[in-house]
Design a protein around this nucleic acid. Structure first.
Length: 245
DNA sequence: GTGGAGTCTGGAAACGGTTA
DNA sequence: TAACCGTTTCCAGACTCCAC
C-alpha cells in the first residue's frame, strides 16, 4: 500500500496552485474525508493558509453547533465535553502539513525532494553531471558489483558522458532490454527508453541484438530444442504456461 | 468489403568515437 | 587521416485491427 508521501509526490508541484473546492477535494482524496472537512469548516482553502495556522484543531475548543457534528467524528468526547482529537485524524493532518512544509522548504532552497536519499550525492554546480559523485560500491556494501542493478546504473552513468549516438550497452542490459520490450510492448518500451536516456538501446539496436542472438519470435512456432537446452542448464523439468484466448 | 489509424520491420543516412 | 564500428533518427512498406 502506497504511503501518503508516495501518492502525493507526483502532484506536489501543482498542489500549491490549488484553492477552494479543488484543494478540499485533494485533501479528501489523499488525506481523508474528515480531515478535509476540518480544513473546510475553517476556510483553510489553500496551502499558504494551512501552513500559517499553528493548530488546525484549536477550533474544537468552541462549543459551536456548527462544529459539533464534525467534532463527534474527529474527536473522542468525554462526559464533561472535554475532547481529544482522534490519533489517526491528527496524525494524517500533521503528516500532510509536514510533507507540505518539507516541499515548500525544498523549493525555496532549490534542493531535491524528498530530502532522504539512498546514497549521498553532492551537486557542486548546477547542471553538473553526477557520474563521478556516486560511488555505489563504497557506500553500499550490499550493492554487489556483479548485480544487475549495479551494471544497469553504471551503464547509464557511462552513457551520460557519451553523445547519444555512441552509447554502449552491457550484454546484461541488452538482454534485459530485449525481455522488457517483449513483455511491455513497443510503446511502453519507447516511453521508458525516452525517459531514461542512456539506459536502454534504441529499437533498431535492440532488433540487431535480437538477430545476433537468434531471437526472432514467431507466432505458433515453439522452440522446444531451445527450451530443453535451458531446462537442462538449470536442472529443471517443470514448465508453467499461461494461455489466453 | 473498405478505409483509416496504429504497429512492426527493415533499410538508409548521419554522426561521433576508436583504431591502425 | 581514413576505415570501421555502434548508435541514432527517419522513412517506407507491410501488416493488423477496428469502425462503418
Amino acid at each position: 500500500m502506497a504511503s501518503m508521501e508516495e501518492e502525493l509526490l507526483p502532484i506536489l508541484d501543482t498542489v500549491s496552485s490549488y484553492s477552494g473546492v479543488a484543494f478540499y477535494k485533494l485533501v479528501k482524496d489523499y488525506v481523508g474525508i474528515v480531515e478535509s472537512e476540518v480544513l473546510e469548516i475553517q476556510c483553510i482553502k489553500n496551502i499558504r493558509i494551512l501552513l500559517r495556522i499553528p493548530d488546525v484543531f484549536s477550533f474544537f475548543q468552541m462549543n459551536s453547533k456548527d462544529t459539533f457534528s464534525l467534532k463527534k467524528r474527529a474527536c473522542i468526547i468525554d462526559d464533561d465535553m472535554s475532547y481529544v482529537v482522534r490519533a489517526g485524524i491528527r496524525s494524517n493532518i500533521e503528516q500532510f502539513i509536514e510533507l507540505l512544509k518539507q516541499f515548500e522548504e525544498s523549493k525555496s532552497t532549490n534542493s531535491n525532494f524528498p530530502s532522504q536519499t539512498t546514497t549521498s550525492i553532492v551537486i557542486k554546480q548546477p547542471g553538473q553531471c553526477i557520474c563521478h559523485q556516486v560511488n555505489i560500491n563504497k557506500e553500499n556494501e550490499g550493492f554487489q558489483s556483479k548485480s544487475f542493478v549495479n551494471i544497469f546504473i553504471r551503464n547509464i552513468l557511462n552513457n551520460l558522458e557519451m553523445p547519444s549516438n555512441n552509447y554502449h550497452f552491457d550484454p546484461m542490459v541488452s538482454k534485459f532490454a530485449s525481455a522488457l520490450s517483449i513483455v511491455s510492448g513497443h510503446n511502453a518500451y519507447e516511453f521508458i527508453r525516452l525517459n531514461l536516456p542512456g539506459a536502454l538501446p534504441s529499437i533498431t539496436t535492440l532488433r540487431n541484438y535480437n538477430q545476433s542472438i537468434s531471437l526472432p519470435l514467431r507466432e505458433c512456432e515453439f522452440r522446444f530444442d531451445s527450451l530443453k537446452t535451458y531446462l537442462d542448464s538449470i536442472d529443471s523439468s517443470y514448465v508453467f504456461m499461461v494461455c489466453s484466448s
